[in-house]
Amino acid sequence: MRRILRDKFRLGLFDDPYVDPDAAVELVGAPDGRALGREVQRRSVVHLAGGPRTATRLYVEGIDPAVAAGYGTVVADPELAELAVVRLATPYERREGMLEQHFHSGSLEFDPAEVERLTALAAAVPTAFAAQLERPAVLTPLAPHAALLIGEFGAADEVVLDAALGRAPMTGTLPFDLPASDAAVAASREDVPFDTAAPLFRHGHRATGGS
């Protein structure tokens, strides 16, 4: 909180909290700002395991097919693809509490039926899984089957595809442990950072090679 407030003071938000609407129109969405934002996204992508692949026939899930069409031929049948690129949302449980309706919580493990589907897909075609890590997902059942495993934090489809196809380096490092299971999370101490026993990937992880 102190660091957040420090930056707000540096920006003068408490001295002059009012904005100039005309200036906002020129600044918000400006090309240089968008380019900087895209570069930040690229640098945040974490190479967890495996390696990028070159491919001209793509099967995609969670990615706009129109965007993927700029990288190759998009096919509806995974068995006709050279590479599948699948974006994964971190699991969570729907709960009724006021706060928990707005902040995802609960189990970090994927539904067994979804794990079965995804591993079958990876058996049919080399698959790059891009996990959107709004919270630390349990990727243990998927990691052995992935041709490439990526951690990302809300990147654009183009950023994910550039990483999966080896068109951009993956230079990010993991900001937290990725636990091996929910049981490991339950056994960790809440007030001790990076206390997860035998995590799948440790805080600071970045795979070497292939990026």
Rank of each mutant, 00 (worst) to 15 (best):
A180I: 01
L48D: 13
L11K: 15
E79Q: 05
P31A: 15
L178D: 08
E61P: 08
T119W: 13
V85L: 01
A198N: 05
R2C: 09
K8G: 04
G172D: 15
A186Q: 10
E109R: 06
D64P: 00
A35R: 15
T208F: 06
A69R: 15
G12C: 04
R3H: 03
T73S: 00
V19R: 10
P126H: 03
P144M: 03
G106Q: 01
R10G: 01
E39F: 14
L108F: 06
A164V: 08
G12N: 12
V19K: 06
D64G: 03
D22M: 05
V19G: 05
R189G: 04
P175Q: 01
F201Q: 01
L36P: 02
R135H: 15
E82Q: 04
F129Y: 14
A23N: 10
I150K: 00
R95I: 13
V25C: 00
E39A: 15
G210L: 01
H203Y: 15
A137H: 01
E152F: 08
D22Y: 13
L108T: 08
M170V: 07
Y71K: 10
E26Y: 04
F129T: 07
V40K: 02
E96K: 15
F103M: 12
Q41V: 10
F201R: 07
T173H: 07
A198C: 00
I63C: 10
A137F: 12
L121H: 08
F176I: 03
L121C: 11
R53V: 02
M1K: 08
D32R: 14
F201D: 07
A124W: 05
R87C: 13
G51I: 00
